[in-house]
Amino acid sequence: MRLFDAAEIDAALSFPALIDTLAEAFRSDGVMPPRNHYTVERPTGKGVLLVMPAWSAPSAEKGYIGTKVVSVFFENGKRNLPGVMGAYLLMDGDTGRPLAVFDGNRLTVWRTAAASALAARYMADEDASKMLMVGAGALAPFLIKAHRSVRPLTDIAIWARRPEAAVEVADALALEGIEVRATTDLEGEARTADIISCATNAREPLIHGHWLKRTAHLDLIGAFTMEMRETDADALHRARVVVDSAKAIDEGGDVAVAIKEGSYSADKVAGTLTDLCRGTIAGPAEDGGITLFKSVGVSIEDLAAATAVWENSQRG
């Protein structure tokens, strides 16, 4: 059984190839059982254990089974550790034989960024040139690179609660030849951005609906619990809303929070990423306007990314 670390995953994946792989996965009949949440009680506080299984469609020529096991410990920042850590196990779909274990964090940032860019490929203005990245965590550089692969972005700004963190991400991307500027003007940048991507641990809205210009696309990733929120209900009401899965309606932040508090209705959600990929709904509305994609992460994305890494490694 092989072990794939972060460097090997980086070497095996690219944008937009992974975006195309995810599109195929969402069009398929892959199986995604409900993910399981377990609360872990420790003297230092509560943690969460997530188990996310998926397997290939019965009709798939070559089948795989995969499971991601993720821990979430919000106090880890005080220990200089990531709040989210995990591993991914890939198995042969016909025999159940374990094939490989992957660095779960690295696989997650790749597939999460690819899913957001996949949604943007359907929903964002085709001429989108200005992007605002909100948050400077591990996902930020991947989201920037993923969105650059589907839209002609020429002006990219990054904002973070700690300005020095935004500078660090901008400097790191500069080494890869990607020009990004750090900003402290969140509202000003949000008012003119074509694409706004949020990946934060915010518990109160950072982006307000009345800031958004009519052609904006809002990409929400960070709020994955009912205690978290990156935008307000006004943004939801102004936008055509698509979610990655039903979990975003009843479990994750933003959309689910607004529904629970009564400021938004689930029947206003246009559909899911599966609907977009299968062509059963359109990205923007017929008369255009703001679009919004809410992601909480689904297991078919992990399976698709792990399979891509595995199959690429077998070819070379």
Rank of each mutant, 00 (worst) to 15 (best):
A306C: 05
L292R: 01
V243K: 04
L118G: 06
I195M: 10
K145V: 02
A193I: 07
V242N: 07
E230W: 00
G271I: 07
A233D: 11
W110D: 02
K294Y: 01
A25T: 04
A7T: 14
I144E: 03
V40M: 14
T95V: 09
L206S: 05
T200I: 00
E261R: 13
A166T: 06
V257A: 05
A235H: 03
R42F: 12
A60Q: 13
L81Q: 15
S245W: 02
A166S: 12
S295I: 02
A202N: 10
I259E: 01
R229Y: 03
T154A: 13
A87G: 13
E227Y: 10
A54N: 09
I207H: 00
D254F: 01
R97Q: 12
V169Q: 02
R214Y: 06
G135I: 01
A136T: 03
G288C: 08
E204T: 14
E261L: 06
P284H: 09
D185V: 11
T307L: 03
N105P: 10
L175K: 14
D155C: 08
K247S: 14
E8M: 13
A239F: 06
F102V: 09
D287I: 11
N76E: 02
A305V: 07
L212V: 09
G47C: 11
A304F: 00
Q314A: 14
T183K: 04
M91Y: 08
V241E: 03
E179G: 10
I9V: 13
A120D: 05
D267V: 00
N80A: 14
W110E: 03
T225H: 10
A12W: 00
I300C: 07
H210C: 06
I300R: 08
K130M: 15
P43Y: 10
G104W: 01
W159D: 04
E164V: 11
Y88W: 05
G252V: 10
D185L: 12
R203A: 11
A193S: 12
L3W: 14
T215L: 10
A54H: 06
V150I: 11
A233I: 01
N201V: 14
S313A: 15
T108E: 05
N76S: 09
K46C: 11
L18A: 11
T274V: 13
L276H: 05
R214V: 09
I178W: 08
A60G: 09
D10G: 11
D94G: 14
R42D: 12
D5S: 12
P98K: 01
G288L: 07
P205Y: 05
A100P: 00
S265T: 12
P43W: 09
L132Q: 02
V31P: 06
L206N: 00
M52K: 12
L22M: 06
